[in-house]
Structure formats: structure tokens, C-alpha cells
Design a protein around this nucleic acid. Sequence first.
DNA 1: GGTGATTTGTCCGTATGTATC
DNA 2: GGATACATACGGACAAATCAC
Lengths: 253, 253
Amino acid sequence: MDNDKSMEKSKDLLKNRKVKAPLYISVYGDILNMIKEGTFKNGAKLPGEYTLAKQLNVSRGTLRQALLLLQEDGLIYNRQGKGNFVTSSKAKIEEGLEGVFHAPLRFNIEKYDDILVNVDFRAATKKMQEILSMDSSKLLVLFEFTYRIKEQNVCYSTLFIRYDNIGGFEVDLNDKVKLMDFIHNYIENNISNILTNIRVVSVRDFIAKKLNVPPDDKLLCFDEIMYSNEGVAIIRAKSYFRTEYYEFFLNRK
Amino acid sequence: MDNDKSMEKSKDLLKNRKVKAPLYISVYGDILNMIKEGTFKNGAKLPGEYTLAKQLNVSRGTLRQALLLLQEDGLIYNRQGKGNFVTSSKAKIEEGLEGVFHAPLRFNIEKYDDILVNVDFRAATKKMQEILSMDSSKLLVLFEFTYRIKEQNVCYSTLFIRYDNIGGFEVDLNDKVKLMDFIHNYIENNISNILTNIRVVSVRDFIAKKLNVPPDDKLLCFDEIMYSNEGVAIIRAKSYFRTEYYEFFLNRK
DNA sequence: GGTGATTTGTCCGTATGTATC
DNA sequence: GGATACATACGGACAAATCAC
């Protein structure tokens, strides 16, 4: 392809576009501007679709096409029966995945109403023994986190630590707030490297039940192994996210 | 909870487990060992489920439970009508997302049979003007990549660059192999920072058609803005992945 | 816990313009 | 020019989720 020729072709494209840019694109631009200018602020609800359509002088269908585009760009999100909301840009300006230990606490687009914590002990499965390079006589401490929004479980996260790694600390396993602080501190002080595997999985019975989603629903899964300064695997964490409640960021240099 | 008491409780748990560990767990362990030991190598097909079940002396149902666990751990993947395959561990030992420019080329779990490349020119939409801080008189070059496995589109990726950024280079827009090399080199030499937004989206008509998936199918979406050494946004890339063909890694320190 | 109002989700029918052959 | 297919746009109707009372 000759560059001059394609330049011509593209100018034609420009001219044509000016005449026939679809209405929903310009509506998209209008709403984008209103968000930009602060007419609709972070986390705020947009006017109802009927109202907004009337305001913008388009049909509801056209408005919805524009709203879908905005959703696709992560600028708004919506909830049936509630409305359309401007996505809080908190995460965008703060640290991304590259500097965050526990993703469930950072990348939720709505605030949690509740976090359930459960602590238990487990014998290590073969896979766990291999990952954490331990034998079957050692015990694992299992932390189980369930994150909730409006009576719905939106994230289920498990964290396995070798008991002999944290047994020495004085931790009250009942005080869940302190417990989470402890874990956070423990990770911050003892972990130097996290290998994360990210994939989308169709969940089966166990996880489907935990998150109360239909089986075969697709969830985002973070499978993480955390290594100490000495390169020893200490923690394995696995988190399942209901996709419509999360948005992740990563900063690469 | 008292630590001694919970230790007792957990020992009980251990004892119980020894007796009634489900069969599919031990089958899971067996297969894991076989993969570990190289009986089944990277990318290799496992024996058919009927055969394997007979080999391991369990029912096909039990075997399948174990296979599902292995899938959940990303160790194998399966394809209806073809079989179960050991996931290539290439990505696991190489660099993760933190050091990769173009994710579609690194995180596919099967080899691509084909990559389609298309080049076009576009006028900048409002959003694009804002992102790339340009006015509407400027042109964008659009690169469009479609990654294919066995006649199926598994990833669709677009890359927008300001024309004035690459117009000076002598690039033959028809030689697609050289084109991809050029882009890769351009990014490597001119980009110092990439901000990635990761989310799972229900795709509508346009993308659904590009990847030939039913509408409302959930795809993983990477929305990226690439910045030059001077902190200027130069490239916007957007990639959609069919989730069953990809697995991502991230190394955080 | 039930009821009704509000809000989004979905579907239908109709009409128009555009691209393709 | 004609036939066809498709995207765009509007309006109406009902379903489903949410919330306030």
C-alpha cells in the first residue's frame, strides 16, 4: 500500500465520517463530557434512562447504545433495578496490581458491605505439599475470605500458610479485623515476590456455591504463590471474582 | 479460639482426612505425579478418558472429577472431541505480564495456526483524542490483529497509533510479518510505561462477530495505554481474549 | 413479609439509510 | 435500477430487580 494513497483514502474516510457519524456515538461523547466536566461525579448515579434520553433528546434505545459503549470503556457500570453509575476512578490513580498484595481489597468497583473471615486448619494436599515444599506431617492454616455487597457474595478468597511460619506469633484467631491486619503486615514484611496466575474459569459446585452463582458461570481466578526473601514459597492464595464487580489495573514500566 | 485447642481440632481433622479422602483427590495426585515425572509431557495429549480411567482403575466419572481439579489448577486443559492436554508451561518459566508488550503473543496455551493483520486509517473519536491528547484533524493508524487456532478466532486485538508518530518511518503496510516486527520494535524503543486495565466483559455485536462467539459471552479484555519516555500517550491497544485459550502470569516484587 | 413505584433488561414492530451484488 | 442484507433509530410493552413504605 502506498502511503500517499492511503492518506487520500483516509481523508475520504474523514469526510464521510463527518456526515454520518451515528447518533449514539455523539451521545457517548456528550455523556463522556458530562462526566469529564463533573456534571456526573465519581460513583454518582446517572439520571434514569427515560429521563436522560429525554434530556439528550434521543430514544432510550439510542441512549442505551451509548451507555454500553461507556460500559465497555469501563467508565460507567450499571445494575438492574438501580441505575447507571460512574465508575469510581480511585483505582486508576492509585497503585495497580504491580504493587498490591491482596487484590480483593483494591479492585472492587463498589464498596463492600461485609467481609466474612474464617480460619481453619488443614492437612496439606499433595499439590500444596509440592508448592509449599513441605511434607504431609505439617499443618496448613487456611484463611477464608468472603467479600459481600448487598447480601451477595462477590469474591471468595483462600489463603494457605504453613502453620510453622506463623505459629510463633501471638494472633487472636477470633478478632477478624486484627487478623486481617496481621496477615497484611505478615505479607508486607515477609514476602518479596508473588507469582500470579490469572485466568477465567467455569466454576463447579464448590466455588459456585460459595459465591452463589450458577454452575458453569465464568469467574476470574487469581492463583498466587508468595515467596519469602529467601525464595521459599510460604503462602498460596486463590481468589475467585464475580467479574461484574471488579476491574483491575496494572502498571508496567 | 485457643491455639492449642485448634491444634487438637486440626489433628482430628488430619486423622479423619486420612480415612475418607475422596478417591478423586488421590486420582488427582496420581495424574499430577505422572505429569511431574514426565509420563505426560508439556502440551501432550492424555490418554482418552475411558482408557485412562481403566488404567487408574476408577470410573470415568471419578477420573473426570480429578481432571476438573487439574483444569482448575491450570495444569491441563481440554477440548471437546479432542481430549485432555497438559498445559504448556512455557509461560510459567518465562516472563510474565510485567515484562510483556503484546499479551496475545505470549499467553496463549495452544499455538496459533494463523494471525491476520489489517491496517487502516481512522479519524480520532473524542475518547481517542482525549487519550492520545490530539485534535480531530490528526489521523490514527489502526492495526487490527486476529489470532486463530483451528479455524477459530481466539483473540482480537486493535492498536491505535497517531499517524504522525510513525509516518516518518518507512514501513511497508502490506508486508505483515515485517509490520509486526516494526510495531514490536517501535514499542520496545519508544514506550516506557504501559497502563493496563483488565476486566471481563460481556461482548456485544461487533466484538462477538469478530471472535465469532454468541453475544453476551464473557471475554477477557485488556485495555492499554502506552506512554513514551516523556510521559506522552502514544498508543492505545485493546485486546479481547476467548477465555478458554489463555492463561496469564504476573510476577510482582 | 407484601405492595407498589422506580429502574434497567429484553423484545417486538416499524422506518430509514447505506453497502453490496 | 432492483433486490437484499445490515446498521441505525424510534416507540411501545412487558419482565425482572430493587427499594421505600
